Amino acid sequence: MMANYQFLNTYKFRSGVTLKNRIVIPPMTETMSFHDGNVTQDEIDYFRIHTGGAGLFITPVANVNALGKGFEGELSAAADQFIPSLSRVAHAIHQNGTKAVLQIFSAGRMSNSQVLRGYQPVSASAIPAVRPGAETPRALTDEEVEQTIADFGSAVQRAIQAGFDGVELHGANTYLLQQFFSPHSNRRDDRWGGSLEKRMAFPLAVIQLAKQVIQKYAVKPFLLGYRLSPEEIEEPGIRIEDTLAFVKVLRQQQLDYLHVSMGNAWRTSLNDKSDSEPLIKKIQAAAGVDLPLISVGNLRTPAEVEKVMATGIPLAALGQESLAEPHWVQKVMAGAEDQIRYQISAADAPDLGIQLPFWNFLTNLTGSKDEVGSNRKQDAKHLDKLFS
C-alpha cells in the first residue's frame, strides 16, 4: 500500500508550471555528448531510461559559448545549430508528464586550454583556481562580460525554441557565475567587482536578461531557476554570510526556485565547525516564502526525502540514487519500497544507460571500480563534483 508522502503531491511554481510531484533529478555530469556539444544516441537513451518518474528533470550542464566549455562530453547551447540536438533532449525527457529544464553555464577558469582547443580560460580576474594543474585564466574585458551576458540570454532563447520547460542558471560548483560572486576569483575594481554588491552584478545581469528573454519569447509558462554553492574554503572566499546576503537579493528577482548544491543536504558550515545549524536551514530563512528551494545531497530513501518536506522545503532532488533506481517514484507509488535499488554494480551500468565514460567518472569519484552507492560517507564526500 502506498504511503501518504508529501513529496508525491503536485507543486505549482510562480511562473505557472506545475509538477506532478516534488521529486527532482538534478543536473549530473555524465560526459556522454559528442566533442562538439551535440547530444549522442547513448545520451538520449540514458535520458529515456531515467526520466518519467520525477516531476522535474534538470539536464547536465550546457555551455553558452565556446569559451564556456568546461570538459569533454558536455552539451552545448552556444549556437542555433544546437537547437535540433537540444530538442531531442527535451523530447526524450518529456515522458509521463516529467518537465525538462536545461541547465546552462560558462565554466570560466574551471576549464583548460586543451578543452578550449588552445584558447586560454577566462574568468572575472586572472586568478587560478586552487587545484592541481589549474591554469591562470584571462580576465574578461568589460565588453566580453557584456557579450557573455548576451550569450546566456541567447541560450535561454534556444531552450525555449527547443521545447524545454525552463532553464537553470548554474551559479554553483565554482563556475563563472560563482567566480564573479567570489572574492577569491573576482579581484576587479570596476562595476563587476570590489564590494559584495558589485560581485553580485554579473549574476543579477544574467538573471535580468533571462527574464526578459522568457517574457519576449516563451509562449507557455517557463521556469527560471538559479543554482548556488553556499560556501568556499578558499581564502578569501565565499562565506555563508555572503550567500545569505545574496539569497535575500535573489528572493526579489521573481525566480521560480533556488537550487542549493551540496553533497549532503544537511551539511553544516565548512568554515565554522562550531556552528551546528545546517546551511540549508539558514538559506531557507533568508529565502522566505518568495524563493522556493530545491534541496539536494545524498538523499536516497523515501523517509529521507520526506524529512526535507517536513522542514517546509518544497522540492527534493535525487542525484546518485536516481542513477541506481530510475523507477524510484514508481516503486514508492506502487508500495514497493522494499524493491528500491540503492547500489549500482558494473554489471548494472549498461542496463541503466550508463556508458563507460560516465561509469569511469562515477567510480573515480567514489574510489570503487565495481560498485557505486554502497559507501554513503565516501559518496557524500565527492557528490559536489557529480552535480554539475
Score class of each variant (00 low, 15 high):
I93G: 01
I93S: 02
H94S: 15
H94Y: 03
N96K: 14
N96M: 12
N96P: 05
N96F: 06
N96D: 15
T98W: 05
T98S: 12
T98N: 09
T98G: 07
K99M: 05
K99D: 00
K99G: 00
A100I: 08
A100R: 00
A100Y: 00
A100D: 04
A100G: 01
V101F: 10
V101C: 13
V101L: 12
V101R: 01
L102C: 08
L102Q: 03
L102H: 05
L102W: 04
L102R: 07
Q103H: 05
Q103C: 09
Q103K: 03
Q103M: 14
I104M: 09
I104W: 04
I104E: 03
F105V: 13
F105C: 12
F105Q: 14
F105T: 15
F105I: 14
S106L: 02
S106Y: 01
S106T: 11
S106P: 05
A107G: 11
A107S: 14
A107E: 09
A107R: 05
A107W: 04
G108E: 06
G108W: 02
G108A: 07
G108D: 06
R109H: 03
M110N: 12
M110D: 06
M110K: 07
M110C: 10
M110R: 10
M110Y: 08
M110S: 10
S111T: 12
S111H: 07
S111E: 08
S111W: 04
S111G: 06
S111N: 08
S111V: 11
N112G: 12
S113L: 06
Q114Y: 06
Q114N: 13
Q114D: 10
Q114G: 05
V115T: 10
V115K: 02
L116K: 09
L116F: 06
L116Y: 11
L116Q: 11
L116M: 09
R117W: 02
R117A: 14
R117N: 14
G118W: 06
G118M: 05
Y119T: 12
Y119V: 12
Q120L: 09
Q120H: 12
Q120T: 15
Q120G: 09
P121N: 03
P121Q: 07
P121I: 04
V122T: 15
V122I: 14
S123M: 03
S123E: 03
A124C: 07
A124Y: 01
A124S: 15
A126C: 09
A126E: 13
A126Q: 08
A126G: 10
A126W: 00
I127D: 02
I127R: 02
